[in-house]
Design a protein around this nucleic acid. Structure first.
Lengths: 213, 213
DNA sequence: ACCTGAACACCGTTCAAGT
DNA sequence: ACCTGAACACCGTTCAAGT
């Protein structure tokens, strides 16, 4: 009996259930979220998909809201990763970094529309209930500010308030992305509605406003 | 008995119930929507607030979704009204019209954040299930295009694609408004976070990009 | 015509109980 | 420690029945 108890726990064949239920619930919830909309995501459906009882998720998430916050946090992490990737791809070229970041922002939003609605749609509280939620968002915004500052020091961007210029750039592409996934761009623009063309056009106009006269 | 039946129906003291239950339900739903978030709006709570049974709303709205679409339609109507108001206030001054429209857009979004999330948050289907929903949105966008065209004919805006320029302007202010009500602007911008200042700054930059070189 | 009440299937959450 | 099943209050929706 003493030798049996020495066997490492994680090597036992599915002792009760999964090895990483936390992660599995998060993945299943993300998938179900994108399949329908955010209102019809049910904790019980997530549990059924993973194959556990409908009360099992409460071991890993305090709330339904807490699970939603977990999904949103993954989304913000991916957003921050895309932004730093855009910076790396165009060293010394702030305008190119901004264009690249815009395209990646659009691609991420269009690829995960419901997750984006969760991240930006006033579903989670803005206060510090979920501290790690906003952390990645702030990180992404810091990257944006760095791009603006580099452009200013190179003399190609106007020498105005960095935060406001960064916010302007963010607003532009964020607005386009959200209007697009809401179907409002297709309703408004008659001709091509090609995502890449639209992104280039909007970003170019925005850049023209940011650039030094 | 015959004289009694001649009394107009709407004068009888609350014969069964209200005179305009449709409108009352819509108003109560709007109020409850803004008090909490969109997920926790319940048809039964609306019915209780109005003072009817929880099945009465089904006489006036096919669905919960149909009620939500009704709320969103009111929002789009108000948006369109604000936009045409902005045009009237600054005749012959497209740049001023755009600034005015931006301020009114911001005010409306900040005043009814949950309604805006309903209008633009991928809650309702994009297809023609609710035809009058997008109609007001299109009307507002047409007004925006008219402003751009007037600016082009006056020679103060670039002579590029009107729809894309209008979409750029819309994206800018829409993005700022949605980031603001999501609490992301306060998290990002350190200093004033004054709405009017931000709106002027973002709109000015956007206008600089739209203007002819 | 317009509204009600019972009924059904679903949901989030809690809690004592199982291994 | 981790998971289950019964239980509770709530929800959207339907339908036969009331005035």
């Amino acid at each position: 009996m003493t030798t049996q108890t020495a066997v490492p726990k994680q090597r036992q064949a599915k002792p009760y259930h999964h090895g990483d239920l936390h992660h599995e619930i998060l993945c299943a919830a993300r998938q179900l979220l994108e399949e329908n909309n955010i209102a019809s995501l049910s904790l019980r459906a997530v549990a059924k998909m993973v194959g556990v009882s409908h009360t099992a998720p409460y071991r890993h998430f305090k709330d339904k809201e807490s699970l939603l916050a977990g999904i949103a946090a993954v989304g913000f992490d991916e957003l921050a990763a895309q932004m730093s990737e855009a910076v790396k791809l165009h060293p010394g070229d702030p305008a190119g970094q901004l264009q690249e970041a815009a395209h990646r922002y659009m691609r991420l939003v269009i690829g995960n529309p419901q997750c984006v609605q969760l991240m930006f749609g006033n579903v989670l509280p803005c206060d510090d209930t979920y501290p790690d939620l906003m952390a990645s968002g702030d990180f992404a915004f810091d990257g944006l500010k760095n791009i603006i500052e580099e452009g200013q020091s190179l003399g190609i961007f106007k020498a105005e308030d960095v935060e406001i210029m960064a916010l302007t750039a963010w607003s532009c592409i964020h607005g386009l992305a959200l209007l697009f996934i809401g179907g409002h761009v297709e309703a408004a623009v008659s001709l091509p509605a090609d995502i890449r063309t639209l992104t280039v056009a909007v970003t170019t106009t925005m850049l023209a406003g940011l650039k030094a006269g």
